[in-house]
Design a protein around this nucleic acid. Structure first.
Length: 464
RNA sequence: UCCGGCGUAGCUCAAUGGUAGAGCGGGUGGCUGUUAACCACUAGGUUGCUGGUUCGAGCCCAGCCGCCGGAGCCA
């Protein structure tokens, strides 16, 4: 079935050409004068194509007049200039084929406003709405631009495992992967579950990060990135958290924290430029209906460098602010959400890269700075979404890394292969993790992270 | 998990402890090169669940479930 994409038809606007499109009816408006208008969308474009179906069509009365919102059709005909306002061209139908009707009494997506909460219960149908079609196109464009960005810079795309036995130093609670029967699992001598008889012969989980494996490939291929699903079994109920989300984790050998921050900034700003160029109709919709500052913000950020400051400087800014925070500010205490929001939304009003956090509040693998009290960590904070990137230069010195493992109460045996990377040809290296959905949130203005992933998984919700 | 808010028609929401309402959407009819179409008529309800107080509960009380926002955890 050869068909034209509505995006191409609208872009070329070739009056006089024949075209055949397939899509879903957004609305049908009848004229007693003897014809009907169909707004048809096929997902290739934000915009609908207006179809004019004359009563002279052989199936006008039997088919066209029964079309309602949600019906699937193929329409062939001639492209003509549109006398009406709102579109340059329209398709004068010579043939209308109905593939599937959508009973208006039962189909929930009628032409009316539906809350995002309601649409989450209709996750299988919401891609047919303006908003979720636009989100899906922007998300896809951002994924494509991610691969293009890293390929241009000679990063290799590495597939790190989804099932893992390491927990990346408690980046979060983990989902257990097992083939044992929960009710009749074999027991060991102490009465606990005997995981030596499980599928992998040991406890295994869904990954919370591909970083450790990413480091192994960076220490061989030089520059790598991962882009895959990540899982956290936290009981998080916020508009910024998912139990299953997608993360992009670049890792560079022969790189320090400055290189890391420069990469993060180039990446994020490059993506903004990409969607501004390639997703203009979708972004205009978001700018009109979701967040009136979206286009101005994206354009501004794409054109201006991120503000960099150290954790110590950030604490000073907070202390000098005169603001009364719910959580105390002080060197050594982690930055709370309200602190991050104040810094990026009020004090500086732009994306920030905060670096060099106290070593006590950061994981063992982050490189200890010369001052001995901070580590070469970085967080990228953006207004409204918050922390979008977390990363660091990695500790490449074997003795220092061992000391930190011990100090954090972690067992060296569990990190044998990770320590090997420091035993053999160790090299300064750095990387970060970017939450893909948070990026999509920022680029679309969508407030809830559950609305920027097709089928969100959150505590108590794994339908579809 | 903690704090706060909310669960009433398909959807969005009203309703002093006293007969359950509107708008949108649906259906029918009318009208119009329409584009958030418009006009008229019409159908549509176990007020989240369970128990309690009361002559009487959508409303008050308790427990539970769900959703939303904030916090924590983090990306």
């Amino acid at each position: 079935m050869k068909r034209d994409l509505i995006a191409d038809v609208l872009r070329r606007a070739e009056v006089g050409r024949t075209a055949c499109v397939g899509g879903w009816v957004k609305t049908r408006r009848d004229s007693k004068g003897g014809f009907s208008f169909l707004a048809v969308n096929d997902g290739s474009s934000f915009h609908d194509l207006q179809v004019v179906a004359e009563a002279t069509l052989p199936n006008y009365r039997d088919d066209v007049l029964k079309l309602t919102t949600g019906a699937a059709v193929t329409v062939g005909g001639e492209l003509v200039a549109s006398p009406g306002a709102g579109q340059r061209i329209e398709l004068r139908a010579a043939e209308v084929t109905v593939h599937g009707y959508a009973d208006p009494g039962a189909y929930p997506l009628q032409k009316k406003k539906i809350s995002f909460e309601r649409l989450r219960e209709l996750a299988h149908l919401r891609p047919r709405t303006n908003t979720f079609g636009a989100v899906a196109r922007v998300r896809s464009a951002l994924a494509f631009a991610t691969h293009a960005f890293f390929r241009e810079r000679h990063f290799h795309y590495v597939h790190t495992p989804i099932i893992t036995a390491s927990d990346c130093e408690g980046a979060g609670e983990m989902f257990r992967v097992t083939t044992l029967d929960a009710g009749e699992a074999p027991r060991d001598a102490a009465g606990g579950v005997d995981y030596s008889r499980d599928f992998f012969g040991r406890p295994t989980f869904l990954t919370v990060s591909g970083q450790l494996e990413g480091e192994a490939y960076a220490c061989g291929l030089g520059r790598i990135y991962t882009f895959g699903p990540t899982f956290r079994a936290e009981n998080s109920n916020t508009r910024r958290h998912l139990a299953e989300f997608w993360m992009i984790e670049p890792e560079m050998a022969f790189a320090d924290l400055d290189d890391n921050a420069a990469l993060a900034e180039a990446y994020v700003r490059g993506l903004f430029r990409h969607v501004l160029e390639y997703c203009a109709p979708d972004l205009e919709f978001f700018n009109t209906r979701i967040d009136k500052t979206l286009l101005a913000t994206l354009t501004h950020i794409a054109d201006s460098p991120f503000r960099r400051l150290t954790y110590t400087e950030a604490v000073e800014v907070l202390e000098r602010s005169g603001r009364r925070f719910d959580f105390p500010v002080g060197w050594g205490k982690d930055l709370q959400s309200e602190h991050e929001r104040y810094l990026t939304e009020e004090a500086f009003q732009q994306p920030l890269i905060v670096t060099d956090f106290p070593e006590a509040i950061k994981p063992f693998y982050m490189r200890v700075n010369d001052d001995g009290r901070t580590v070469a960590a970085m967080d990228v904070l953006v207004p409204k979404v918050g922390e979008i990137i977390g990363g660091s230069q990695r500790e490449e010195r074997l003795d220092v890394l061992r000391d930190r493992l011990r100090a954090k109460g972690l067992s060296e045996q569990n990190y044998g292969w990770f320590l090997d990377l420091r035993r053999f040809g160790s090299v300064p290296h750095a990387g970060f993790g970017l939450g893909f959905e948070r990026l999509v949130q920022f680029c679309t203005g969508m407030q809830n992270i559950r609305d920027v992933i097709p089928f969100p998984r959150t505590p108590g919700n794994a339908e579809f």
